[in-house]
Design a protein around this nucleic acid. Structure first.
Lengths: 340, 340
DNA sequence: ATAGCTACCGAAAACGTTTGCGTGTTGAAA
DNA sequence: TTTCAACACGCAAACGTTTTCGGTAGCTAT
C-alpha cells in the first residue's frame, strides 16, 4: 500500500525544496527547464495529485456545493440533484448532499455542519417544518457569514437570496384553464394545507382561473390534505358529494390517488372525470391511465440553481442584487384528460 | 457581514494564546476554571465552530464518504443514497455524491477528484461501461492508497473489497416458486440480455425453480430484452403465442409494460395472468393494478454499505478480510397476482 | 534558602499547499 | 577586477487546528 505522495516527499527524493517542486509543477518560469522536466516526470510517475484539503485551507474555498433538501427518495428532488451535479461538475465543483427529512432541526444541524468550512455555498429547498415555523435564522446566519445561498422550489421571501422556482400560480392557472376550455363545469382541487408555499400558490392559481372565467369558487370543491396517508376519505367525499367533472391535483400522488378512488367508485377516468397532476414523475408516466400533468423540469431547475450559485461564488465584488428565476412549465397531455 | 471567527481571533481578543483557547474549548484540566469559562462564554457568544477543513488537514480524515453511482434519477439508487446518508450522518459523516452517467471516463474522473483528499472512502455501484470494459484500475488504485471501497448492487469479483448485494438468484427462485405454489403451469420470463449481471442471475433463478419442481424450461417462454424502448413486440409475441398464466419480470418497467400490453390484448391481470416484478419502486406501488414485486430494500442496502465502510474506516489495524453481505429480499403481494 | 511540586499557560510543530521575497551563482559589461 | 543583471532556487509565512513540550510563577517542605 503506497500512500499518496506529497510535495515534501518529491522534494526530498529529488533533493530540491518544496517550493521548487510546487513551482515546477505549475510551470513557473522561475524554475529552469531542466528541473521542471525532472520534477514533472517524477510527479507523473508517482501519480501526484495536489491535496484538496490543503488547497481548500489555503485558498479558503472548497469547490464544493452543499445541497440540503427534505428528501431524496422523491423523483423531483432526484432530478434537481442531477441537474445541480452536472453543472457543478462542469465547473469543477463537487456536491455534498444532506437530507433534512422534513425536519427543522436536521436542517439546522446540517447547515451548521457544512457551514463550518465544508462548502462554499448552499442550494436548498426548505423542509416542511421550517416552512411551518417560519424560522430562518440558520439561513440568515450562513448568508451573513458570506456564504451564498440559492433556494429552489420551496422558498420563502423572508430571506434575501437567489431563488429559482416555477411559476406555480401560473401553471395551476393554465391547468384549470385547460379544463375550462374543454368544457368542464365542475372543477375540483386536491391540494395541500396552506403553509406549504407551493401548495398555496397552486391553490391561488386555481381560484384565479375560475374567477377570471366567471365561475364561482365552491369551497366544497377544494380539499386540503394534511397527511398523505389518510387522504382517501376526504377525496372520496369530494367525488361523491360534488361529482366533479375535472380535478386538478397539486402533485402526482394526489392525482394517482384520486384516479384510483374514482375507479373504485365506478367513476371512469377520463370519460366521467378528467384529472391533471403536477410534477412529471414516474407515476404519471406509468400509471393506468397515464396522467396528464404539469411538467416541472427538475434538471433544468437544478442546473439553473447551480449556475446562479457558482456565478455568485466566482464574482469578485459582491452584489446585493438577488434574482429570482422562473423555470417554465408546460402541460403534458396524457390519458387522464378527455379529448372532447 | 461577520466572517467566521477563528481560534486566533478569540485568542487575540481575550489576550491569551491560541493553545489556551483550544484547550479551554476542549475542557482541558490544564486550564484554570476561570479562563475556561471566559473562553467558552466568548466562543459561544461569537458562535465559534472549528473549521472542518483545518481539522481534516490535521487529522488526515475528512469524515466524508464519497458515493459514485451511475444515476440518481432512479428510485433504487435514490433509496440507497438515502440509506447511506442516514447512517453516515448518525456517525458524524457527510456524503458527497458523484454521478458517472454510466460512463467509464466520468467514473474514473470522479474517483480521482474525490481520492485527492476529499473523502475517506467510497461507496459505489459500477457504471455499465465499466462493467463492459472490465477495467477496474481506478478502483484498485484508491484501494491501494489505503482508501476503503464498498461496492453495492453492480459489483465485480475482480476487485477485492467489501460488497453488499442481494441474492438475485434466490429472489427470482422464490418468485417463480410462488407462482408454482399458486398452481400456475405456464410461467414466462421477461429478462435482460445476459451480460447484465443481475439479469443473468435472475434468469438462472427462474430456470432452477422450474427444474426443481419438475417443470420443463421452454425457451419460447423467455424473452430477453436488449433495448427497453422496443420491447413491446417481443412481449406481445410471448403473450399471444404462449398464453402464459404467469410472468416474472426482472424489473419494474418490464412488469408494468407487460401488464399494459396484456390489458390491451384483453388479457386480464390478475385473473388471466399473474405478474411479479423486481424492485419495489414507485411504479409497482401506484400502477393499476398495483404490482406484486420482489422488494429490494435500497435503504437497508445503503445503510449496510455505510456501516461496513465506517467500520473499516474506524478500526485501527487493517483487516484484509473482505466481506460480501447479502440483503434479504421478500415478495410483496399486491394486486397483480391472483389469490387463488 | 533552596529544591521540588503544582497549577497554569505559551511556543512551536505538524498537516500540504502556494507565493512573495531574499540570496547565491553565473556570466557579461564596464 | 569590479559591478550588476539574470537566473535558479530556497526560506518562510499563511490557512486553522491540536497537541507536545517546556516554562514560569507561587507555594511547601526541608
Amino acid at each position: 500500500m503506497k500512500r499518496k505522495v506529497t510535495l515534501k516527499q518529491i522534494a526530498r527524493e529529488l533533493d530540491v525544496s518544496i517550493s521548487t517542486v510546487s513551482k515546477s509543477l505549475r510551470n513557473s518560469p522561475e524554475i529552469s527547464e531542466d528541473t521542471r522536466q525532472k520534477v514533472q516526470a517524477f510527479a507523473k510517475l508517482y501519480n501526484y495529485r495536489p491535496n484538496n484539503i490543503a488547497l481548500s485551507l489555503k485558498n479558503k474555498r472548497t469547490k464544493t456545493i452543499g445541497i440540503i433538501i427534505p428528501e431524496i427518495v422523491h423523483h423531483f428532488f432526484a432530478t434537481v440533484i442531477s441537474g445541480i451535479e452536472h453543472v457543478a461538475n462542469e465547473n469543477g465543483y463537487n456536491v455534498i448532499v444532506c437530507l433534512s427529512d422534513e425536519s427543522f432541526d436536521k436542517e439546522v444541524i446540517n447547515m451548521d455542519m457544512l457551514a463550518s468550512g465544508s462548502t462554499d455555498g448552499f442550494i436548498m429547498s426548505l423542509s416542511k417544518e421550517t416552512q411551518q415555523k417560519k424560522d430562518f435564522h440558520h439561513i440568515e446566519e450562513v448568508i451573513n457569514q458570506g456564504m451564498p445561498v440559492v433556494m429552489f422550489d420551496r422558498v420563502t421571501n423572508e430571506v434575501l437570496c437567489d431563488k429559482v422556482i416555477i411559476d406555480d400560480q401560473l401553471a395551476a392557472y393554465e391547468a384549470v384553464e385547460f379544463f375550462i376550455n374543454k368544457g368542464c363545469k365542475k372543477i375540483g382541487l386536491v391540494t395541500t394545507v396552506d403553509y406549504v408555499s407551493v401548495g398555496k400558490l397552486r391553490t391561488d392559481g386555481y381560484i384565479n382561473a375560475l374567477k377570471d372565467h366567471d365561475m364561482k369558487v365552491n369551497e366544497d370543491m377544494i380539499v386540503k390534505i394534511e397527511d398523505i396517508d389518510n387522504c382517501a376519505s376526504k377525496i372520496e367525499k369530494l367525488l361523491e358529494e360534488q361529482k366533479p367533472d375535472a380535478i386538478f391535483a397539486v402533485n402526482e400522488l394526489f392525482a394517482v390517488t384520486t384516479i384510483k378512488l374514482a375507479n373504485k367508485m365506478g367513476v371512469k377516468v377520463p370519460e366521467d372525470l378528467s384529472v391533471i397532476g403536477f410534477t412529471d414523475g414516474i407515476i404519471s408516466k406509468f400509471s393506468t391511465p397515464t396522467i396528464s400533468t404539469i411538467s416541472q423540469n427538475g434538471i433544468k431547475m437544478g442546473g439553473r440553481a447551480a449556475k446562479m450559485l457558482i456565478e455568485r461564488l466566482e464574482m469578485e465584488e459582491e452584489d446585493e442584487l438577488y434574482k429570482t428565476e422562473l423555470i417554465e412549465t408546460h402541460l403534458v397531455e396524457r390519458e387522464s384528460t378527455a379529448t372532447l
